[in-house]
Amino acid sequence: MSGDWTDDQNDAIVADYFEMLADDEAGRPYSKAEHNRRLQSQIGRPRGSIEYKHQNISAVLKGLGESWIPGYKPAFNFQKSLEDAVARWLVSHPSWITGESRPALMPIQSRVRSVAPLWIGPPPTHSNVPPPVELEQMTAIANKFDVAGRDARNRALGRAGEERVIAHERLILMSANRSDLAKRVRWVSNEDGDGAGYDVESFEIDGRARLIEVKTTNGWERTPFYVSRNELAVAESRRSEWCLVRIWNFAREPRAFEIRPPLSAHVALTPTSFVASML
């Protein structure tokens, strides 16, 4: 069989991919070869075509700010019909996004209490930007499906990321013999609400204030995120204290980078809404 894939074929391989992805994230053994043979029988496509389509699905998930199966390296220039099939699966399985049915996200509480410090590296720069075709497709998918808004609305993911940063901050302070400061680290957004313009109140080793806004995604380091007008205002008024910690790849192996004001030196800030007042 040749030509474009049908919706039924796309839906079948996407469902099979997520079955493997769930096993992969949970550390359960599974056989890619067996999955491939089963799909060959089910959808009438050859082994190589199925393998490459798995790589296409990884690319779609990358654009959607989701994790993917490491053994299927993202392959781009995929068809829009596949993009739609992945979106259909996610819509019909909302608990995957929220983490309720996701093996790697379910034991969040126990993991946060026993974690090591976060791996914090440099933020993405122009020097390590992906090839233009890849970046264009990733950006288009992220904008089309409002990936930044989805992550912002995912309260479970956001809270888990904030907890992870709190644990990290306390560990860093305690390792520097500043248990006095570690005890004073506060989860501001949980205790006082979201109006402060930052989520965590921590400290530098020398006692200076450290105000942290946390942005979390299961996707790659270039997954877009929302920044509120209030967060920007606080970042500007308290430049020496405020920072943004971006956690990515949260479902698998959380990594992070930190950026400090002015944010415009690190990210492109695009207005997404306007207040309309009657004339």
Rank of each mutant, 00 (worst) to 15 (best):
M1Q: 05
D4V: 09
T6Y: 01
A12P: 10
V14H: 11
R28G: 01
Y30R: 00
Y30E: 00
R37N: 09
R45D: 08
G48V: 06
S58G: 06
A59P: 09
G65I: 01
S67Q: 08
W68R: 09
P70S: 11
K73E: 10
D84A: 15
A85V: 11
L90F: 02
L90K: 01
V91A: 13
T98G: 10
E100Y: 05
I108A: 15
I120N: 02
P131E: 09
E136Q: 14
Q137L: 10
Q137M: 14
A140H: 08
A142W: 04
N143P: 00
F145Y: 15
V147Q: 06
V147R: 14
R155N: 08
G158L: 06
R159N: 10
A160D: 14
V165Q: 03
I166Y: 03
I172Q: 15
S179T: 14
L181T: 06
K183S: 14
R184Q: 15
R184Y: 03
V185Q: 04
G193S: 05
G195Q: 11
A196R: 15
G197P: 06
E201T: 01
E201S: 15
I205W: 00
I205A: 12
T216Y: 07
W220T: 08
E221K: 12
E221P: 01
A233G: 01
S237V: 04
W242A: 03
I247H: 07
N249G: 09
P254W: 02
R255E: 12
I259R: 00
I259N: 07
R260C: 06
L263T: 07
H266V: 01
A276F: 12
M278Q: 11
